[in-house]
Every structure is written in C-alpha cells, then in structure tokens.
Amino acid sequence: MLRLPTFTYYRPKTAAEAVRQKLAHGKDAMYVAGGTDLYPNMKRRHQTPLHVISLQDVPGLNTVEVQQDGSVAIGAMCRLSALEVHPHLLLNFGAFAHAVKEISTPLLRNMGTIGGNLLLDTRCTYYDQSHEWRESIDFCMKSKAGSICWVAPGSPRCWAVQSSDTVPVVCAMEAQVELVGPDGTRRIPASELYRDDGIQYLTKRPEELLTRLWLGAPSNWKASYVKLRRRDTFDFPVLGVGACVWTDSYGVVTKANIRLGGAGSYAIPATESEKVLVGQQLTDAVIAAAGEKAMKPARTMDNTDLDVYWRRKVAPVFVARALAACK
C-alpha cells in the first residue's frame, strides 16, 4: 500500500483560524482543499507535513456569487464538478467552464476544488514519481534532499511545468484572486499569483489562503481554452492555451491576452502573438500569423508527455485554434 505519512489533522471553522494554525506550525503545516493534489504527493513523500489544515469547514467558500453586473466571485472550495455545470458560468464564462471540464476525470472533479487547481503544484517527469524511483537516480532539486535538475543538469533552476487547466484561461481573462493573510484580505490579478520557477511557483506568502476567484463582467471580450494531451481524460495539459480577445464594434481587436500553459513553469504570455492581433480583425490570415509567433515563447522541455520538439511545433496550431474560438 502507498500510505499517507502520519500527520495531525485540523478542520478550522474560520479563515482566520486556519491562517493562525498555519502560522503557528510554519513549514511543518500545509493547507488542503480537495486533497487530489496534496495526498498523492504526500503518499510519494514529496511533501510530508506534520500538520494538515483542511479548509472544508471554513464558511462561505462553497458558493458562486453572481454580481449585478454579471461578474462572479467563485469560492475557492467550490468543487470543479459543480462549476462545470453552473448555468451562469456556462452562459457567460464558457471558456472557464470548459477549462474546468477538461481537468482530469469526473471522479477527481467531484473532489478537487477551484482553489486547489489554481494552486496546483508544478509537475515534471523527474519529480512526479515514487520515492524509490527518485531515490534511485538521486533526488532532483524540487525534492528537499536534491540539488540537481535532471531535465537540464546544468541549470541553476527548476523547470517543473505549470499544469493547471484553469490558470492559462483565468490569467488571459484578467481574473483576480482574493487572498486572506494575517494582515487582512487583498485582491490581486491572477497573473501576479505566479512566478517563473518550478519550485517557488507562487508569489503568495505560504500562510496566505486563496479564498475567492473573481471573473470580470461579461463585456466586449471572448475567451477560449484549448488543451493538448495524449488521452481525452486523466492527463494534465501537455499544452494548454488560454486566450482572451477584446474587440470594438467593428470587430477590430483592441486587446488580446494569450497564455501558454504546460509550456514552462508558469502560464507564459505569447506577447508577440498578442501584438499581431491588436488593430486587426480576427481573419484566418491574422490568426495564422499570430499563431506562428507562439513557437518562440513555448519553452518546452523534455519533462512531460509527448515529444519535446513536436510540442513546440504545435504551439502555433493550438494558439490559432484558441484564437479561432474567440471569433
């Protein structure tokens, strides 16, 4: 049996109490939401917290609050399977609902939460293995005991891959996240939650709790999410393109955000592709030209599924598909 290591389990009744418990135990404590990312990692001894703080009893985190203007505040503990069928999300935030439905399997979406998916650990072929496997080749730098990066042995940094389906699309949509810490609550753009490092992939302080995701009101934008993976279920994105395009009344693009998931340690902006779009209508030629510019920022490494060079080559195709869906 792959067993969990022993730990003390807490179910605090408020966010403030959860933060206090995390502060009290520091690095020895971890938050858990749905558990579908943390518990497998604990079983493989990636993380061995002595204290696990469950957020399931924190009130108010299980609701989708639709505001007057159509924007929504999604509680971090909302199950993914509830979000993928939520009528307001399906109608007004179809790209987000689609990205949620693309996550893993129906069983895991019954357990996993949106907060957990937004904070999903980065992944790597050399890291997401059993303890014995990793020990046999010597631990990599993402493990506590290691110092080398096996995918790029000369590298001073970790190249583990951003693997959440929702992150590229919420970053492209300029969504915001609410964080609760010991000093109160703050709201930041979702894209500022992440940084380009496989180990320190989040900018939030460890004790800060992600409590809500805010999606901006429906307006003159359209978003999309397109995912590449080997199987149509289970698999993390090998490439996940989130796109959001703002247009004026003539169909001319006024702003565009394109984020490449699964192509680096954070959802990488395809800045040159975005530049091609602004001031243009989304014609097939413009979309193809924007797609071509996406090959360069896709920093694929040989640390996930499918051939590394092919994954880079198809980035333009997937960006073009995502943009075509924004028409």
């Binding site: 792959l2 389990y9 558990g35 497998p40 493989r44 399931q56 069983l107 895991l108 019954n110 357990m111």
Partner: peptide
C-alpha cells in the same frame, strides 16, 4: 492509490469519489 485509475471508487452522499484520496476522518 494516487487517483489515476478509479478502482477505489465509492459513493459519498451519492457522489462517486476516490476513496484512496479521501480521509477516513472526513
């Protein structure tokens, strides 16, 4: 035992979940 196969599926309050990633306490 890692959530990748579904062999351990049970229903909790009518919803199918993976018992290998669900704490007994919960």
């Amino acid at each position: 035992e890692l959530g990748e196969c579904g062999a351990c599926t049970v229903q909790i309050d009518g919803t199918p979940v993976l018992s290998c990633l669900y704490l007994g306490l919960d």
